[in-house]
Amino acid sequence: MSLSSPASSLPGDALTLAATSTSGGEAVSFWVLGTIAVMGALGTVLLRKAVHSALCLAGTMVILALFYLANGAYFLGIVQIVVYTGAVMMLFLFVLMLVGVSAADSLKETLKGQRWLALGCGLGLGIMLIAGLGQASVSSFTGLAAANSEGNVPALAAQLFTKYVVAFEVVGALLTVAAVGATLLTHRERIEKSKSQREQAEERVKGGTQLPPLPAPGVYARHNAVDRPGLLPDGTPSHLTVSATLLSRGQVREVGPEALHRVAALEQRTADNHGQTEHGRMYGEPHEPDPDPDLDAARERDAREARKAQEAREEEASK
């Protein structure tokens, strides 16, 4: 993608002359990226989930940053990425997480015909804007080569701190006020006194709820995963042992009597396949491991070498 203004390729005093067309590379990038930007904007409006909308908008903003760079606004291009996609969109995502990600727009119309009216108004606005632009005759453009000759950032700074210095200061004050305002808006005064630990404990005792910690899941069951309820002594699963979240989601695995029977049958089959009796597996039949000839040979060799080394050391010591 060509970032340079076309006029910059003209020599010397031609810098101030007007150009009529940008480079071909910029045209290609405009059409490709412009299509993606419009698609991102449509996605922002049309996708039902707010997170998808936010991601589409972030993509559109990155492409707009590239367009700023292509138009010679190097400082603004970087600021667009840092401020918009980096800060503003992430702030949007934070608030989305706070408000609930899964909340999708309802398609129910609260005002009758409002949607079609809005679409009609939007279409009218678009036609008006584009027709108005078509009426304008901009056959040539100056380009920023002269204005950016000492660099985009120094040129912007020179204007910002002389001609626009009052606006700059006011904007600084605005940012401060906005920060204070946001803190004030989201701050919540605590009206009732917060309960102390003692009061909480007494409340619990009075309420007659479970006082000691809840029993752990999977204890006395065959598995110790959190979604397996622990078994009571008579073999029934206790739902106190699994998290209430898993219970309400219906993600608790059953270890009821049938499951226990299935496990017992499986164990019996495994034991049969291994040629062992259930009794032997449980109480352990005494058996010697088979002697391994390679292992014995290796042990013998090691012992011989150790003996030799010992003799050598003794000879050394007697000398």
Partner: peptide
Amino acid sequence: MSPVNYVYLAALLFTIGAVG
């Protein structure tokens, strides 16, 4: 391509945003 195309694109994006 004339840089006015950027303005056309901006008009389109503005309209989409307004409808949204």
